[in-house]
């Protein structure tokens, strides 16, 4: 995730302090991982240096930096380009699960057990997300669904592989 683009996107609604931005980001996208202030200020100074934001006054008052930031025209163009550029789909070709299954087979250990315990762990995680989704609002639902669909894809692979373990063992044994 490009934090710079996310902050620029949030600034398009109007100027704000670093603190406002952190809060807006955490509310919408932070989920279990809120931003550190340090990340926000480092990112804002980079955006400032690159001319994507500009200072829009300093507020008097206690507490940390009260500088306000506003997005520049160059910043708006940058957000537009980012939104219009598709994310590169993950190739998913290196994966730990496949490696574990092959190594279990190579070493004569129970590969089915590796798949089974992974499957149980995946379903446990899916249950937690499903409960959170059921109790949550639309934003929670969409975020949890994204995670659920990915876990489900893993599970389908685990099932398919479980059905082909004998075949795989034969190939590996050669």
């Amino acid at each position: 995730m490009s934090l710079g683009h996310a902050l620029l996107g949030l600034l398009e609604r109007g100027p704000g302090h670093g603190y406002d931005l952190k809060k807006a980001y955490d509310d919408r996208f932070g989920q279990d991982r809120p931003l550190h202030y340090g990340q926000v200020y480092t990112t804002l100074s980079r955006l400032l240096r690159n001319g994507l934001v500009q200072e829009a006054g300093v507020e008097a008052g206690a507490g940390p930096e009260r500088k306000r930031y506003a997005i520049t025209d160059a910043g708006v163009t940058d957000v537009e380009t980012w939104l219009a550029t598709p994310e590169k789909p993950e190739p998913y070709l290196q994966n730990t699960l496949y490696t574990k299954v092959v190594l279990a087979l190579l070493s004569g250990r129970a590969a089915a057990g590796v798949l089974d315990s992974q499957r149980a762990a995946h379903l446990d995680a899916m249950r937690v997300l499903t409960r959170r989704k059921t109790d949550g609002d639309l934003a929670d639902q969409l975020i949890c669904d994204y995670a659920l669909f990915h876990l489900e894809a893993d599970l389908r692979w685990l099932e398919l592989t479980a059905d082909r373990l004998d075949q795989l063992a034969e190939r590996i044994g050669r």
């Binding site: 499957r119 995946h122 379903l123 899916m126 249950r127 997300l129 499903t130 059921t134 659920l148 669909f149 876990l151 489900e152 599970l155 389908r156």
Partner: peptide
């Protein structure tokens, strides 16, 4: 047979 449906349950039996 859908994991996303099974995730609504308390536990699963395979």
């Amino acid at each position: 047979h859908e994991p996303r449906v099974a995730a609504y349950a308390d536990r699963e039996v395979v």
